[in-house]
Amino acid sequence: MAQVETPQEKRKLVEIRGPRNFRSRVLTDKIAKTACLGVILVAFYPFADILYLFILNGVRSISWARLTENTVGGNSLGGGGLSNALEGSLFLIGLSALIVVPIGVFGGVYLAEFSNNNWISKVSRFTADILAGVPSIVLGYVGFSLLVLYFGWGFSAMAAAITLAVLMFPYILRTTELALRRVPESIREGALALGSNKTSIINRLTLRFALPGILTGVLLAISISVGETAPLIYTASFSNYATTQLFHSPVGYLTYMVFVFSQIPTSEAHALAYLASLLLVLIVLAINLASRVGLRRLTKPLESEG
C-alpha cells in the first residue's frame, strides 16, 4: 500500500476492482430487469388484445337495427338488437345508485364526522371490507332467496337494484369517508366559530367541499356494477322487452347479452355479443378514467392554499 507511483501500480488501481462473481451478478441484474419488463408485456398483452378485439368487432357490429330493436330469442337463437338490454342496464344502474348513494354517503358522514374512530366505526369499516370481498354470485343468491322468493317480488328491477346497491355500498362508504377526512379542519372550525351547528356545517360546507371525492367513489361503484352479471342472473333474470316496472317483471342488461350470446356460435349472436361488449368496455373505461383521475387527486396531499 505504498504511494502510487510506478506505472504498473497505477495501472492496478486504474482497473476497477471486481470480485469474481461480478459478471454473473450483472447478468442476473439484467435478466431480472428484462424479466420484469417481460411480465408487464405478458400482463398487458391480453388487455390490449381485449380492447382491440372488442372495439374492432364491436364497431363492425354497429347497426341501427341492433341498437334500436329488442332482442329476439333467448338462450337458443339470438338475434334482433339490444335496445332492451341497454335500457335495462341504465335502469338498473340508476335505480341502484338512487338506493345506495344516500345510504353510503351519509354512512360515510358518520365515519368521518361523528365516530371519533370508536368501536362502531371500526366494526363498520371491517364489515365493509368483508362485504366488498363477498363474491357477487353469493350476493345474487341471497337477493334471489330473500327478495325474489321470500318477499315474492319475482325477478324484478327492484330485487336486482337492491342487490347491486349492497354490492356498491362499501365502495361509496369508504370513499366518502376518505373524501370528508380530506376537508381541512379549519373550514369546520371557521363555521363552528360562527355558531353553526354540526348538522349545517356538514350539509352546507363539508359535504360540498368533499363532493368531487364522493362523486369519484360513486362513479367507481357504478362502473363495478355496470360490469356485473352473476347477481343479476339471479335477481333480474332477463327480458327481451324494456320495462319500467319495479316488481314482478324481469329486466334485460348488457352483460347477459355477452354471457349468453358469446356461447351461441352463430354470427348474428356473436355480433350482438360484440356490440354489447363494446358498449360495456366504453362505458366502464370512460367511468374508470374519469374516477381514477379524480381518485388520484383525492389521494394526493392537499396543496396548501395561497
Partner: peptide, 19 residues
C-alpha cells in the same frame, strides 16, 4: 386500474375467442 375495471364477462368472452 383500467384492466382491473374490465368486466369479468368480457374477460370470459375473450377467453372463449382467444385464450
Amino acid at each position: 386500474q383500467l384492466m382491473a375495471g374490465i368486466p369479468s364477462v368480457i374477460f370470459g368472452f375473450w377467453g372463449i375467442l382467444i385464450l
